[in-house]
Amino acid sequence: MMPEMTVAVDGPAPEQPQLLRSADTPLGRARVARGWSQDKAVRALVLLADAWGWQVASEASLKVQLSRWEHGGSRPNETYRVLLCSLYRATPKELGFDRAPQTAKGMRDRISTLESLVENLTAMLAAQGVQA
């Protein structure tokens, strides 16, 4: 039987060095949930691709791309989506890959729809005697 171990700490606990952070996106949360830095995730992507005989970008390029993917600045192509799903043991939906990319026209249409909604709600409030 192992003896019980206790740890005593005087004062407040120190801050954890190199706190893991990511964008609040499914892909970013998946990486942090595994306790991985972006560097570690990139190395794992490269090792997985090598094991499968797939060609991928350099580690330096992948680190930039991973940051863009996690922040929604761009979307990974099919090769990287497959690698990321395998690496994180997640479905495309769990990593946020099921959403269609926004086009400029799609964004303009959405903005127009939202503007119309605001105008209609403002008119309805005015008709009720409520100032917006």
Rank of each mutant, 00 (worst) to 15 (best):
N77Q: 08
D39C: 05
L87Y: 04
R99Y: 15
A104N: 14
P3N: 11
G106A: 15
S22I: 04
S74G: 00
L66D: 01
A132F: 10
M124T: 10
V130F: 01
A13V: 11
L125A: 15
T113N: 09
W69H: 10
S37C: 06
R81I: 01
G53S: 02
A13Q: 03
A127C: 10
R68W: 04
Y80P: 00
W52A: 09
S22E: 04
S37M: 05
T91Q: 10
A126F: 10
L48E: 07
P17D: 03
A33E: 06
E70K: 13
L45W: 10
D24S: 02
L27T: 01
K105W: 13
A60P: 01
P14A: 00
A123N: 01
Q128H: 14
D50W: 09
R110K: 11
R108K: 07
R21G: 01
R21H: 00
E15T: 02
L114Q: 15
I111Y: 13
R68F: 05
V9I: 06
A100T: 13
L95N: 09
S86E: 06
G35F: 13
H71Y: 09
E59G: 08
A51M: 15
T79W: 08
A100M: 14
S37N: 04
P17S: 02
R34E: 14
T6I: 01
D50H: 13
T25K: 00
L66F: 12
V64R: 13
R43H: 13
Y80V: 00
W69Q: 10
W69F: 06
A23E: 07
E4D: 11
R75E: 11
A90Y: 01
G73W: 12
L87A: 02
A132S: 08
L87M: 05
H71M: 10
P12L: 00
T122Q: 05
R110S: 12
P92F: 04
P12H: 00
S22K: 05
N120C: 14
R34I: 09
Q55N: 06
E4I: 11
A44D: 14
V56W: 14
L87S: 01
M124E: 12
S61R: 09
E4L: 08
T113M: 10
G96F: 08
L121W: 07
P76M: 11
M5Y: 07
P12R: 00
T103G: 13
E4M: 06
R31D: 04
H71Q: 07
S116A: 15
E70T: 12
A123G: 03
P12G: 00
A100H: 07
L125I: 10
W52T: 06
Y88G: 03
Q38H: 14
V42A: 06
E78T: 12
H71G: 08
D98R: 11
L114H: 15
L45G: 02
P12T: 00
Q38A: 14
